[in-house]
Design a protein around this nucleic acid. Structure first.
Lengths: 157, 157
DNA sequence: TATTGTTATACTCTATAACTATA
DNA sequence: TATAGTTATAGAGTATAACAATA
């Protein structure tokens, strides 16, 4: 098989893989979104924001939250407004920089998130239940390569 | 290590894997969406609909398109309206069922899609360029298991 | 000047439910 | 009655750009 045909076949393999990644993610994501709404009256971005804060008990600045959630700043402001109004997060001042704000889970937020997170983890374990422990590890490693390659290859020609 | 601790660790592995799947997909998807908009003034669902039709030259019924794109019917109507207005797809009658419609790419649609698809494939090959041929195959196989498990496990308790 | 966060706006994407026309 | 597709609506999710306050 000549180089060009080989290359084309590789191309098609990459494309097939991408379509399958998209399908899997959408299948799981749709299920999770629906259940978050039905069972907890919340949304994925709200859940995600709280999950980020839970992993950083000292709190996160808005721009850091924005970076981690991979959305622009205005959205973080909106979600934070909602969660703050419900008493789940709080904005606190940052020393030595009066422009910045630090967002933290409140005690009520921690409790509410813990309850959701436990159930949510069950959904994910269930969704990925077709994989062995070893396969989960392999997938995690390979997707780690994808992530790294995307992050070291950010230029947009 | 006892069973419960083991189980908890597996849970965390599944969750970590899910978060990484989500990150990878979002990174690639955001890049693709942006480029589809900038370079072709189109969107991912529009591209997806045309891709589905390209794979079925005989055309697809609305409800089949809806199933394959994993969205509800009203959305397919809207996207089809746009593409039809631009002359890229056409609605044709179905024999023996005057309720149904068959959607097909027009000749202009085929040409426009071919141009986009070639460039799009390059983006994907580039995004997945951190993986060897063998790793692409492994990922595809493992995600196939995830997909199958999701599809045989549709009940929502 | 540059950065942090907010506001305002617009658009895409989506689900739901009521509707029509056939079957 | 059930199905195929449409319409109408509402809301989620997002990006963009202009803005205020501070660095």
């Amino acid at each position: 098989m000549d180089i060009e045909a080989r290359a084309h076949e590789d191309h098609h393999d990459a494309l097939r893989l991408w379509l399958r990644m998209l399908t899997c993610t959408q299948l799981i994501e749709q299920r999770v979104r629906g259940r978050l709404r039905e069972q907890f009256e919340t949304t994925l971005p709200r859940f995600d924001l709280m999950a980020q804060l839970e992993r950083s008990p000292e709190g996160l600045k808005m721009n850091e939250l924005s970076r981690r959630m991979m959305v622009t700043g205005g959205n973080v402001t909106g979600i934070t407004d909602q969660l703050e109004a419900e008493g789940l997060v709080e904005r606190t001042a940052v020393v030595n920089d009066r422009r910045a704000l630090c967002i933290r889970l409140t005690e009520a937020g921690r409790k509410a998130f813990a309850a959701m997170a436990a159930v949510h983890e069950g959904w994910i374990v269930d969704a990925l239940g077709g994989l062995s422990e070893r396969e989960v590890t392999t997938l995690h490693k390979l997707l780690g390569k994808v992530k790294q390659h995307m992050n070291t290859n950010e230029v947009t020609p």
